[in-house]
């Protein structure tokens, strides 16, 4: 990890300790409070990777991933808010040449929600479609064929309690909406692929958040007169998971920058996050099942994020085609 990334890790850890840790449960129950949205803007976390001439901070890849990683350890919802704005919304707007809109997002003047499923006409799903941050004025919509739209439709929200990203008031909406197409599928696919590094940072951050809780809990929780950490299955499993975590972090914060490595890391990290959070909850026993202990949110979010950020067919096919260097995995 280079010096700049190391410094960013420390800075964001402090920010998370001071501004998120104490309200992490409240975020899950009630959503991210407005003052935290403001602090995120003030810290320059939105627009982190855009060049200064566009109003961004011009951070290098690993420093930005340090932000996502540290935020996800405290609150995957907050991390996803920053990821969604930088790696999805601003990237799409940048590619589409929407300078004014970019400026509004960075300054906090406008907020965009994101609908990753089919919302546009022709792609209706009987179950409706998912919207993240649905109360925003505008929506970025992943269209039926992978192209990207901006929409200011006001969807009819069903007030569902979602599996994950509860801090972003994620909901299901009915009906279809019209919108302005801003990117083709090919452009959007490239952006998704580039975003693999950052998705991996969120997966690994939330996994480490869960593992750290499990390690602390198993030190103090006793059963049959011994700490849980004294039992082989607990100590060995958590140690193995922490080892995997360190190896994956070495890649995340290492020298490599290429898209293929990012895609590989995302693939492995999404599976790892689900496995690590599951063990973390398991070793909390019944207490892990209660939201008060702060570990079940990681378990929910790991699976929810996998459903949103890891597209089982498209992503695996892209990875396979890059590895074979020709079209593959399509039968």
């Amino acid at each position: 990890m280079n010096e700049q990334t190391e410094m960013m890790m420390q800075t964001i850890k402090q920010f998370a300790d001071e501004s998120i840790a104490d309200i992490a449960l409240k975020i899950e129950r009630e959503g991210i409070p407005d003052d935290l949205y403001q602090k995120i803007i003030q810290q320059g976390l939105i627009g982190a990777t855009l060049p200064p001439e566009m109003g961004g901070a011009g951070l290098e890849r690993s420093s930005y991933d340090a932000i996502l990683f540290q935020l996800a350890k405290a609150s995957p919802s907050v991390a996803f808010h920053v990821f969604m704005n930088n790696s999805i919304i601003l990237r799409f707007l940048e590619k589409a040449g929407k300078k004014d809109e970019i400026s509004d997002v960075i300054s906090g003047k406008e907020r965009y929600g994101f609908a990753p499923g089919p919302m546009m006409e022709g792609g209706e799903d009987d179950e409706g479609y998912l919207i993240i941050e649905p109360n925003s004025k505008n929506l970025i919509v992943d269209g039926n064929d992978g192209s990207i739209f901006i929409s200011n439709a006001k969807p009819e929200l069903l007030n569902k309690k979602p599996l994950g990203l509860r801090g972003l008031r994620t909901d299901i909406a009915k009906g279809t909406g019209s919108g302005q197409k801003i990117l083709s599928m090919n452009d959007s696919e490239l952006i998704w692929e580039e975003g693999s590094w950052h998705a991996a940072a969120v997966f690994l951050g939330l996994a480490e958040g869960a593992l750290d809780k499990a390690i602390e809990y198993t030190k103090v929780r006793k059963t049959f007169n011994y700490s849980l950490k004294d039992y082989e299955p607990v100590a060995f499993r958590l140690s193995e998971l922490k080892s995997e975590m360190e190896i994956l972090k070495n890649t995340l914060f290492g020298d490599k920058e290429d898209t293929l490595t990012g895609m590989m890391l995302k693939t492995i990290s999404s599976e790892f996050a689900r496995r690590a959070t599951k063990y973390a909850l398991q070793f909390h026993g019944g207490y892990g099942y209660l939201e008060d202990f702060g570990v079940e949110k990681f378990y929910r979010d790991a699976v929810a994020l996998n459903s949103i950020m890891f597209r089982p067919v498209r992503d695996k096919r892209s990875l396979a085609s890059k590895i074979y260097q020709e079209k593959s995995g399509f039968l």
Partner: peptide, 11 residues
């Protein structure tokens, strides 16, 4: 959940 992707989140 993995098989159904974002559809599973809505059901």
């Amino acid at each position: 959940m993995e098989i159904t992707g974002s559809h599973g989140l809505k059901t």
